[in-house]
Design a protein around this nucleic acid. Sequence first.
DNA 1: TTGAAAGCGCTAACAC
DNA 2: GTGTTAGCGCTTTCAA
Lengths: 342, 342
Amino acid sequence: MIGEQSRRSTLHDVARLADVSIKTVSRVINGEPNVAPTTAQNVRDAIEMLHYLPDAAAANLARTGRETRSIALLIPTVDNQFFARIFHGVEQVAHEHGFVVFAASTDLDLATEESLIRIFASRQVDGFIIAPAPGDHRGVMAFLGTRMPCVFIDQTPAGVVADVVTVDNAAAAREAVTHLLHFGHRRIGFMGDDANLSTAYQRRASYEETLRAAGVVPDSDLEEMGICDTEGAEAAVRRLLGLTDPATAIFASRNMAAIGAVRVLQQMGLSHRVALVGMGEIDVSDLLEPPLTVMAQDPLGFGRLAAQRLFERIDGHDETPRTLIAPAHLVTRGSGEILLSR
Amino acid sequence: MIGEQSRRSTLHDVARLADVSIKTVSRVINGEPNVAPTTAQNVRDAIEMLHYLPDAAAANLARTGRETRSIALLIPTVDNQFFARIFHGVEQVAHEHGFVVFAASTDLDLATEESLIRIFASRQVDGFIIAPAPGDHRGVMAFLGTRMPCVFIDQTPAGVVADVVTVDNAAAAREAVTHLLHFGHRRIGFMGDDANLSTAYQRRASYEETLRAAGVVPDSDLEEMGICDTEGAEAAVRRLLGLTDPATAIFASRNMAAIGAVRVLQQMGLSHRVALVGMGEIDVSDLLEPPLTVMAQDPLGFGRLAAQRLFERIDGHDETPRTLIAPAHLVTRGSGEILLSR
DNA sequence: TTGAAAGCGCTAACAC
DNA sequence: GTGTTAGCGCTTTCAA
C-alpha cells in the first residue's frame, strides 16, 4: 500500500490495474454487453481495490443526450413546516424516478433566487421547482427559456406564463371568512404576508369579497399585510386588538401568522373570546390552547404534484403551461368556533 | 432569430459571435486581466445575446485544483423542525463561504445513506455533513477515505473516529431526570428512539444512572425505545400509563416523542397530573396545553458549528478528529413542574 | 470481445 | 492583449 496517493483514481487507474483498456472498464461500469465474464470480474476487483467512483460530471460531459438525473428545488426556507413538507413530497417523487433533489433557500428574495437559478443551471440540473419570491419573473423565465423545464409552486410568479401548482386561495379564504361570519363576527381581521405574493393578495381579495357579499364593508384598519415572521405576526395582532373598534375574529392567512396570533391571544387572555382561523396546518394544531381551526393544505401533495408535472416536462410532454389548483379544507378544532360576544 | 437552436450555447458560440478566441471569452468570464475594455464589452454583449451560461461541470473538470464549491448535507428528514434548523444553520455558513448546499434525506436508513454518499461524491462535492443512520460506519468511512472531508452531526456514528458535533446527551438527560426527581417522582418513564443511535442509548444510560444515584432502581418496564414517529410515541405513552405501577412522569428524549406524549396526556385528561419533560424545542412549545418544559438544544448552532468545522477541513486543517459537544439547557414552562400526587 | 482515437466544454501553459 | 495547444475523465464512434 506504499504510495497510495490522495488523488482520486480514474478510469485509467482501474484499466491499468485490471490490464485492460479504459473502454472495457467503461463497459463494465455501464453494464454494456460484450465483456467476457472473467474480464468483467477483474475489472470489478480493480474498482473495489481502488475505491474507484466514476466522475459524474465528466461522464455527463461526454454523454450525448446530457441528463444529470437531478432537479433543483428553490424554496423560501426549509425552516418552515409548510415548505419542509413540500420538499419531502418532491423528494419522494424524484426518488421514484431515480433523480436526486438539490434544495436551497431563497429567503423570498428575487436576487437570491436568480443567483441560485444560475448556479443550478450551470450545474446542469434537468429541471426546476421554484416557490417564487415576489417580483417580476420575466427575466428569470427568459433566462430559463423553453429548454429548461420549470414548475412553480405555492406562488404564481408575476409577469409570466408557466406551470404552477397552488392552492385555491379564493375558495380557502372564502370558506374561512364565511365560517367566522357564521359565528356572528363582523369585525374580522386579516393577516397576510407580502402583498406582492399571489397567495397574499388573492386571499385578501377573496376575504374582502366575502365580507361584501355578506353586507360587511371591508375596513383597511383590519388588514395587516407584510407579515413574514412570528414577531411581525404578534405585533399585527396587537394592533388589530387595540383598535377603537377592535377585531373580534381573525383570519391568519399563513401558518406563522396563526402561531403569532395564538401567542398574543394567550398572553392577553383572549383565547376564548376572539375567534381565530389559520391557513395551513402546523404539526401540533390540535395540541394548542385552544386547538387551532385551520384551512388545511396538503403541502406533501403539492410537492408530489409539482414533481410529477416537472417529470412530464422533462420527459418531453410539451403542452401549454397549466395552473394546477388544489383545494384546502376546513378543520374545526375550537379556536375558530367562538361566538361573537358583545 | 431564425435558427435559434435548443442546444445550449458554449464558449465557442460566444467566441464566434464576438469574433475572438475562446480563451478571450474565458478570460472575461473569469475576470482575468489583460483584456481590452472594448473586447471585453463585445464578449459580454455576445454572452447576453446568447443567454450563455458556463458549464460548471466542464469548468471544474478542466480546472486543476478541483473545487465545486458545494457540500452535501445528509439528514434523516427535512420534515422535522430539528433537522430543518440544522439545514438552515449549515446553509448560512456555506453561503458565507460562497458554497451551495445539496441536501437529501436518508430516512435513517444506512443503505440509503451510503447510496447518497456515492451520488454526491461522484458529483464532486467538496465535503459532507451527515446525521448518520444507525449501523456500522466503517464501510462508509473507508469509502470516503481521508481525502473527502466529512463532519457528522447529531449522532456519533458507530465504529469510526471522525469529527462529530452533538449535544451533551449525558448532561441533558441527567438534568431532565433530576428535575423530575425534585418534584417527587420515582416512576419516571423514558422514551427514546432506535437503541442503536448514540443519542438514544447515551440518554438512556444517563437516565438510568441518574435514577440509581438518587436511590431509584431503573425498571425496564418504564423504558420505551424505538420510537420513530408520533404514532409510535402515542402507543408508548399509553403503555407507560397503563402499567400496574404506572409512570407518574416522563422524559421524552426526542421532540416527536414529546409531541405524542402531549397528545395522549391531553386525551386521557392527565396533562396536569403526569409531569413531562421533552428534549429539543418545537416551534410552539410555549403554546401547548400545558406549555412544554424541555431540554432545549440549539440545532441552528449545531448546523453552523458543523459547517464551520467542515470548512476548516476543506481548507486543509488536518488535526485529529474531534467531538464537539454543545450543551442543552432546561426551559421550564409548566409540563415538567407537576408534583407527584399519590 | 476488445481497443484506439476523437471530442464533450472548459482552463492552463505558453506562445505570439 | 490575444490565440494556440493540450488535456481534465469520460463516452462514443469505428476498427480490429
